[in-house]
Amino acid sequence: MTITEQRAEHAPAAEALLQLDDVGKRYGNVHALRGVNINVRAGEVTCVLGDNGAGKSTLIKIVAGLHDYSDGSLKLNGIVRRFGSPRAAQAAGIATVYQDLALAPLMSVWRNFFLGNEVRRGPVLDIVKMKKVCGEELTKMGIVIPDLDRPVGSLSGGQRQCIAIARAIYFGARVIILDEPTAALGVKQSGVVLKYIVAARDAGLGVIFITHNPHHAYLVGNHFVVLKLGRVVLDAHRDELTLDRLAAEMAGGQELEELSHELQGVDASRVVEPAAQDGHPHVAAPVIDERERAELQHEE
């Protein structure tokens, strides 16, 4: 793998490794994803943000080969591809590190590292070599696990995440998809994982970082795509964006403005004296005008 040092600040010169053109996905009459355009370039971190149900999982499944897409086209190195299975996507150089990491908890570190890509000498597993390579690769990424026979389940979440990333990189991935890698981690461990994302980028990989945390995304991302209800609502390079803007987009952007307008007069800073101990608290019905009532009934 040769690394081309490309300090390209949103230079479109860099050829997109993975290109999604107007990709859509329908499950029956449900449009889970509509008109999504994403370009993933080598040596760049592309962050895909979105709240629950925004279509992030669908997008991952399409790129990882678990689902086919209904509309548009997916191009890898400029060639339109449809992956029939996760194996086909992997063979094409797309590795996915799922939220659940695809590690078997009771199996040892080295067995997990080589799962599905075992090294053999004749019909027999070359355990010595596998342990050696596994140890070297993990050390290269700064993870030291002296006992590779330890079951993966006994390691910390961050360590497991890093093993999964190291594995994807070692087995020749060119595009690596990370599904919410920091979602279940503490601050320290998130930091470690974000460092590995940068390490993968520095190794020349195209990284797709799926997250709902704009702060984590902004720490490492080059390019940001925000999904909402299956559509791209923001597609911007780092230069065109501030963290506040990104966070606002994530939090709902325009919706949030509307919501604050709706809640005018609520007086959020007010603190009310607790009710007298003998009396039951009385909750008054909120004042709702005709328009709001009509909207509520309409939604029902």
């Binding site: 996760p86 194996r87 659940d100 695809a102 075992e118 053999r120």
Partner: peptide, 23 residues
């Protein structure tokens, strides 16, 4: 000591994970 053994352990340990890495 064999690849198949690794697959057996993984299929029982976490079938979805095993499938995801091509077992």
């Amino acid at each position: 000591r064999t690849t198949v053994g690794n697959w057996i352990l993984a299929s029982g340990g976490d079938a979805a994970a095993a499938r995801a890495v091509g077992v």
